[in-house]
Design a protein around this nucleic acid. Sequence first.
DNA 1: GGGCACGCTAAGCGCCCGCTCAGCTTCAGC
DNA 2: GCTGAAGCTGAGCGGGCGCTTAGCGTGCCC
Lengths: 208, 208
Amino acid sequence: MSTAEETAGGETSAWGEVTPDAARRLLIAAVEAFAERGYHATTTRDIAGRAGMSPAALYIHYKTKEELLHRISRIGHEKALEILQTAARREGTATERLADAVSSFVRWHAGGRTTAKVVQYELDSLGPDARAEILGLRRQVNAEVRGIIEDGVASGEFDVLDVQGTTLAVLSLCIDVARWFNVNGPRTPDEVGVLYADLVLRMVGGAK
Amino acid sequence: MSTAEETAGGETSAWGEVTPDAARRLLIAAVEAFAERGYHATTTRDIAGRAGMSPAALYIHYKTKEELLHRISRIGHEKALEILQTAARREGTATERLADAVSSFVRWHAGGRTTAKVVQYELDSLGPDARAEILGLRRQVNAEVRGIIEDGVASGEFDVLDVQGTTLAVLSLCIDVARWFNVNGPRTPDEVGVLYADLVLRMVGGAK
DNA sequence: GGGCACGCTAAGCGCCCGCTCAGCTTCAGC
DNA sequence: GCTGAAGCTGAGCGGGCGCTTAGCGTGCCC
């Protein structure tokens, strides 16, 4: 069912930085539980149980349940930002860089749906301080995409009236993949990435 | 603040069918609370308090807290479906009907963001039976949009490779407006509707 | 004006939540 | 073989949750 296998699919590697081992197992258990039921519907007993531990063990590695969500959210946002930065800063035309950014960003949201769902949809469950920190990362994410679109407009590759509105729409489209993507559905993450890159290029009036 | 004013903005009229008055006030209070905090983080005491009643009053009009969410979700999905059906079945080309569908659908999600957020993002908080009923309505929503796109492909107006994939993307784009739209932001619901209609027509390779 | 149905409240039941703490086990250092 | 630190558990705390119940006030029928 939804064992480590599924979460592992895209990015257990991403949790490699979390040590010690017990803390990582708890974090992965929390990602799965939050993704399945939502942050508020998940109990600390459930998280500990999935990690094969007693409820008290959680509090040796994390101060509160919210700290778990905060850590997940920050690591996830950093990964998402890194993906966009890699695509934005490579060599190539704006068209190539936008297609690359969208397809890899979408691939991450589809393949790592479990993580992405928590990262993108549980922002409001964080307290004000943690939320503010994450919003800073989200502004950087927005800036990367807007930058590529501005480059394309400047070079004449794209035809866009409302750059910020289009940026918002492109990001929204990609992020929402985490909500509807079905691992057992007809499309692979790669296929969705390719489809979405095409759709986004059409949105900016590029390639044809 | 977030008084009845905000919710009223788009569609208090939509709750007109809910009687008696006390039941409607409780339902509107629940919509606001669920939108602000999420279903699981909202207490029945909070809902009753917002409606100016004691916690016990809620149970005279609704059997459980979940019944409130179920009623909100069904009425909201019926309204969303009605909006798309109206656009899909009017006179006009596929291009005109798709633009109309997207702009009015988006206008509803932006203007009635409070309701739309609950309707679109709290589906998983419903029990299996209620969830299954709502999923039926969502399939009808999908079918309306796919119908317009198929018409446009048949008439040669649109150039779409993956009809179902594009349908999913169009709906996803429109629905996600409820997540990011800010009432105090720079754009009115009308403006977002117009922008999105343009973006979607580009996605299907239509109008220029 | 007596009886009663209806809408509501005050009080509180039983449960399970996030979180704590005393104490057990394991193992490295000597 | 003893000691201390680290990692974990069993038991349980205070509190807030969804929901219930006994009873009060009000207005309608006769």
